[in-house]
Design a protein around this nucleic acid. Structure first.
Lengths: 156, 156
DNA sequence: GCATGTCTACTCGGATAACGACTGTCCGAGTGCCCCTGG
DNA sequence: CCAGGGGCACTCGGACAGTCGTTATCCGAGTAGACATGC
């Protein structure tokens, strides 16, 4: 099992936007070149971020993507949710109710122990990612790198 | 992203073995019938549990699978690790070192913020599953269900 | 000089192939038990 | 009646197709700005 690489790309894209002055619009081409990513394929994922309300897109000259909200109010989980769908990666098939040892529906009023454990672990994972904002990630980028990125992107 | 269904099957299989007297050997056919699973396909996953040292297999008449250790000393994570590989589901591609905005290797002595966050969340997930043993899961199965399973499987 | 209309270049969005992993199935290898046979 | 050997049924293990999701790519729709033109 592995996450789509789009998760990494989108997180980097959002962090990149978070390094620029609030409201800055960045064309996809620049983003892709900055990280050495295929422009067309990156579009597939950024589109999903727009749908999820994380980014806003504008077309035409001087168009591009910008953060839909201040970086402090966008969590890493929102980005992952937009790409991966946000549902638990464990899907209980209720096999306890199948086969010769099937439990009766009356005995299955609540999820089985395995389901509960997996769901609990997933919530822990999700919660941890929900507590990290894009602003937190931006702050961990060294200042001189941020400055270099601003110079490279705003003057382009 | 989703976990292989083999994870669910194997967890149920291990919990089922944990309900029987210690050292009980159960043929795969019975296991599959008990949960209504395809026997041949289940083999694919149980094999991996044997390789990982979670189960022990014996062939021939009266053969089958049994727990390699007492249920108290087998964790849920071990089962998942045997099926899914145990590595983090986030693979950092170091795209910060690619493209026009590439960081120099000297600036990348430690993982990037995104990598650190994802890895930390993964460890939390993994640790939580490592703290749950098969015995814990067995105890959450209602006693009358356990008794019914014992009757159904040992007398077969 | 200014307003207006058109035209061009730029940007995002949706639709369409190629690849790989998970899913599903088959047959062969090995082993322990049972039964038959001979003493 | 007992010991030994052969046969058989049972079980796991590895190898081979099918299906779905991720990956990768292309082209079209729409828009904002710039330029030329007429007043």
């Amino acid at each position: 099992m592995k996450l789509s690489q789009g998760v990494e790309w989108c997180l980097h894209a959002v962090v990149l936007l978070g390094q620029l002055p609030q409201g800055t619009v960045l064309p996809r081409t620049l983003m892709a070149q900055h990280h050495g990513l295929p422009d067309d394929y990156l579009a597939k994922y950024l589109k999903q971020l727009v749908r999820a309300g994380v980014l806003m897109a504008s077309t035409g000259p001087r168009g591009g993507y910008r953060l839909a909200r201040p970086a402090e109010r966008i969590t890493a989980w929102e980005v992952i949710e937009a790409i991966e769908g946000g549902q638990s990666f464990f899907h209980c098939q209720e096999i306890r109710q199948c086969g010769t040892g099937a439990a009766r529906p009356a005995e299955c009023t609540e999820p089985c122990a395995i389901h509960q454990m997996m769901h609990s672990a997933f919530l822990t994972w999700k919660d941890q990612l929900s507590q990290t904002t894009v602003a937190d990630l931006v702050q961990q980028v060294p200042e001189h790198v941020r400055e270099r990125n601003r110079q490279g992107l705003l003057n382009a």
